[in-house]
Computed example of a mutant assay.
Amino acid sequence: MSLKLSILDQSPVSEGQSAEEALKNTVELAQSAEKWGYTRFWVSEHHDTYSLAGSSPEVLLAYLAAKTEHIRVGSGGVMLPHYSPYKVAENFRVLEGLAPGRIDLGVGRAPGGMPRATIALNKSRTRNVDDYPEKVEELLQYLYDDLPETNPLYGLKASPMVKTVPELWMLGSSPASAVLAAKMGLPYNFALFINGEGGVSFMNHYINNFTPSNYLEKPKNMVAVFAICAETDEEAERVASSIDLSMIMLEQGMESKGTPSPEKAISYRYSPFELKRIQENRKRMIVGNPNKIKQKLEELSELYQTDEIMLVSITYDFQDKLKSYALIADEML
Score class of each variant (00 low, 15 high):
S271Q: 07
L297R: 08
F273C: 00
K294H: 08
A265G: 05
L300F: 15
D307Q: 15
Y270W: 05
E298S: 04
E298L: 15
K296A: 15
N291Q: 15
I309V: 15
L303M: 12
P272Q: 08
K294G: 05
K264G: 02
E302D: 04
E263L: 02
E302R: 10
E299W: 06
E308V: 09
I309C: 13
S267A: 12
R277A: 05
P262N: 10
L275C: 03
I293E: 07
L297D: 08
P272C: 10
I309M: 13
Y268I: 07
R269Y: 01
N289K: 03
E299H: 13
Y304T: 05
I266Q: 10
P262S: 07
R277M: 12
P290Y: 09
E308T: 07
M285C: 03
S267T: 11
Q305A: 02
K292G: 06
G288N: 08
R269S: 13
E280R: 14
E274R: 09
A265M: 09
K283I: 02
K294T: 01
L275I: 02
P272V: 08
I266P: 00
Q279Y: 09
F273A: 09
Y268K: 11
I278H: 07
E299F: 07
R277T: 04
I286C: 09
P272M: 09
I286Y: 11
Q305V: 01
E299Y: 10
S271I: 02
E263C: 01
T306Y: 10
P262D: 05
M285P: 00
V287T: 05
A265W: 02
R282H: 11
R269M: 06
Y304H: 05
R277G: 00
K264D: 14
E280W: 10
L297C: 11
E280S: 12
Y270K: 04
N291I: 13
A265F: 03
F273Y: 09
S301G: 12
Y270E: 03
K283H: 03
I309L: 13
G288M: 07
T306I: 13
G288L: 08
P290R: 06
N291M: 12
R284E: 05
L303V: 01
K264E: 13
R269V: 14
N281E: 05
S301H: 10
I266K: 12
Q279A: 15
V287R: 00
L303P: 03
K283V: 09
E298Q: 14
R284G: 01
N281R: 04
Y268Q: 11
Q305S: 07
I286R: 13
S301F: 00
S267G: 00
E263V: 00
K283Q: 12
Q295M: 14
K292F: 10
Q279V: 07
L303T: 04
E298G: 01
P272T: 08
N291A: 15
R282E: 07
Q295T: 14
S301V: 05
S267M: 02
I293V: 14
E302A: 04
R269P: 01
T306H: 10
P262G: 08
Q279D: 15
L297V: 11
N289D: 15
K296W: 05
I293G: 08
N291F: 14
P272D: 11
K283T: 04
P262I: 04
D307E: 15
N291K: 15
E263A: 12
V287M: 02
R284S: 06
N281V: 00
E302C: 03
F273E: 11
